[in-house]
Amino acid sequence: MEIVVCVKPVPDAETRLRATSDGTRLDPEGVKFVLAGYDESAVEQALLLKESIAGSRVHVVAFGPAPRTEEVLRATIALGADQATWVDSGADAGAEPVRAARAIAGAIASAPHDLVLCGKQANDDESGLVPAALGELLRVPEFSCVVDLRWDSATSRFRFQRPIETGVESWSAPAPLVVGLQQAWNDPRTAKLPAILKSRKAAIGKVAAASASSESRVVAERFELPPPRTGAKLIEYKTPEDAAQQLVRILREEAKVFP
């Protein structure tokens, strides 16, 4: 099975976010970029499927600028991916999800893909648009928020579940398929030290992004941070009852959230 995983470099969860001086977008200066959280699960899911289906390959594709995109691709090689392709976004930070989907689709349309796995959304923009846009571009059905994705070799179909707002759906579908993954069977694995060292020498394929042809545009205008949370006001108390009384009073009178 040919498994394509689409990943995105996003700021590390502990990064202190800051806007650029013109206030329009996230300032990437000094930001550490890592594999997006759901993308980590997508890579894990791809590796699990590869390990359970003989003759499978995992090909990871990412759209974005240097050097962060190449670095996250290298991280997926260290985890066990067989091939990595960097779709260079040039000066564009690669932030607009539909543009990313078009660029990725351009790079993988002609490559074999029985399964295209994405994280259900990236932790930065949280749009969740890429799986569906990829499905439309590749003319393949897509399913978002997928958990428990398995390959049933007896029927040659994928089986999976989707927790949606009202419950959980179970599905079966043949390849090819685009999946926006919510959770893999396992926690994402950690790359081992020797694999990390080896991944430094791996070849990363590089292709230029196809130019966008849409007349629709998405323009970043402002990036704002809420005033920083300064840390909890700690309640000093003598007894547990004292603590409880103080907290309830604060929630009623100060925070005004008491029902």
Binding site: R74, A78, T190, L193, I196, L197, R200
Partner: peptide, 17 residues
């Protein structure tokens, strides 16, 4: 180097997790 960054990331991740 990027290699040293990734070694440090591995150790940090292990230490924290």
């Amino acid at each position: 180097t990027p290699e040293q960054e990734s070694l440090r990331d591995l150790a940090r991740k292990f230490a924290r997790a």
